[in-house]
Nucleic acid binder design. Sequence first.
RNA 1: CCAGACGGCCGGGCAGUCGCUGGUAUAGCCGGUAAGGCUAUGCUGGAGGAAAGUCCGGGCUCCAUGGAAACAGGGCGGCGGAUAAUGUCCGCCCGGCGUGAGCCGAGGGAAAGUGCCACAGAGAGCAGACCGCCUCGCCGCUUGCGGCGAGGUAAGGGUGAAAGGGUGGGGUAAGAGCCCACCGCGGGGGCGGUAACGUCCCUGGCAUGGUAAACCCCGCCCGGAGCAAGACCGAAUAGGGGGCGCGCAUGGGCCGUUUCCAGCCCGCGCCCCGGGUGUGUCGCGUGAGGGCCGGUGCGAGCCGGCUCCCAGAGGAAUGACUGCACAGGCGCCGCAAGGCGCUGGACAGAACCCGGCUUACAGGCCGUCUGGUCAG
Length: 130
Amino acid sequence: MTTVEETHAEVERLTVRPQFLFVRGGLSERRKSLVIQARRRRPAEGARPTVGKGFTATKKVGNAVIRNRARRRLKAAARELLPQLGVPGADYVFIARMDTADIGWQRLLDDMESALISLRAALNSGSGPA
RNA sequence: CCAGACGGCCGGGCAGUCGCUGGUAUAGCCGGUAAGGCUAUGCUGGAGGAAAGUCCGGGCUCCAUGGAAACAGGGCGGCGGAUAAUGUCCGCCCGGCGUGAGCCGAGGGAAAGUGCCACAGAGAGCAGACCGCCUCGCCGCUUGCGGCGAGGUAAGGGUGAAAGGGUGGGGUAAGAGCCCACCGCGGGGGCGGUAACGUCCCUGGCAUGGUAAACCCCGCCCGGAGCAAGACCGAAUAGGGGGCGCGCAUGGGCCGUUUCCAGCCCGCGCCCCGGGUGUGUCGCGUGAGGGCCGGUGCGAGCCGGCUCCCAGAGGAAUGACUGCACAGGCGCCGCAAGGCGCUGGACAGAACCCGGCUUACAGGCCGUCUGGUCAG
């Protein structure tokens, strides 16, 4: 529980394509309702380590309305979970799947929590960016 | 009340918690007491009727020196009107469908030319005797009828998408626009209408198959590219732009092609400006704008007055979750009114902006009209 307290890091938004491509080269966890990719950044000198987040939904998920809804639900869920479960100094990319827009809200939270915990264990076990 | 036609409108509501983004106010911090930026809090704005497909028409921006004609290419096509403009809309005409309200029409030209029309059929665009019908001759034979031969005939059968005007009568050996009436068609004229067209009269003779979203002919319209347009900031070279001086052609260039007219440019030297990509800023919302009222027009609209400011993101805000009502659907109970449970709210997300078209769409509301039925 003490680790939860100390990982209350600031969260930043990923905005440009190279950041997404960087994260794609890292770790990946897949659940029924979403896929999360994560990769530890090269630490910036002197600055406080932050958590990066980005969201994406491909055309496979559905039309524009479905994609927007899926991305917004991911954003809402990540806003609740990432400050506690995110590893400072790492970037996360949340990818929508077919069920993201329709699945029950609690199930979506459970999937994301489980995936984030797995990723935190993997990132902290020393297997850094390839 | 049932069935139907047309037009218009809505297309989820309210509340709470936590968030996003534009504007604005205040406070704090960073910065050079700057330009400006960041954070917090309050107030306030925040998707659609189709935001969609990107199919038409414009605005706006850049490129092209301006004008005229012809050609090429593309589009449009009854007539009149509306409009910034249209292939849109309104009114009307004509044709077709429907008992009707209404609906549908790519609706100029097929006696300028070319092409195509399979199969079937005797014959398919300078038509055509297969069966049939009729006359004559010869033969058989009981009148009749049958066979063979010569000829006439487009009324009937049959084929076909289409058989060379249609219906009726006269006529004839049988028939035929051969003749006549009406309809259709061509030509001319009168009247009504802005016109498409309607109507009436005279006349001709039957001379005219379909296809022009086939080529084509006729009339009208049309530069190209698009907000990733384009502008600003921006470090070095080149291309490029400007200024000054010198030179200057009979040649060449100036955005679909050609011709004509007018105009401009070309080479060298010096000086100055300037800058590919990316980031940031602008373009970026006061507009052919919305609402209400009045006038005008059959209508699409137009004119006038008052009033409002009403999304501006940029890996892309407008959301997530919860609760309560309310439509709708299904099941059960009940004679019924109704009750209970489950389910459950479509199509779909602005990306420079407007006017249209087309396509998708759960459910609901309003108005006008038509046909039927009942009552009066």
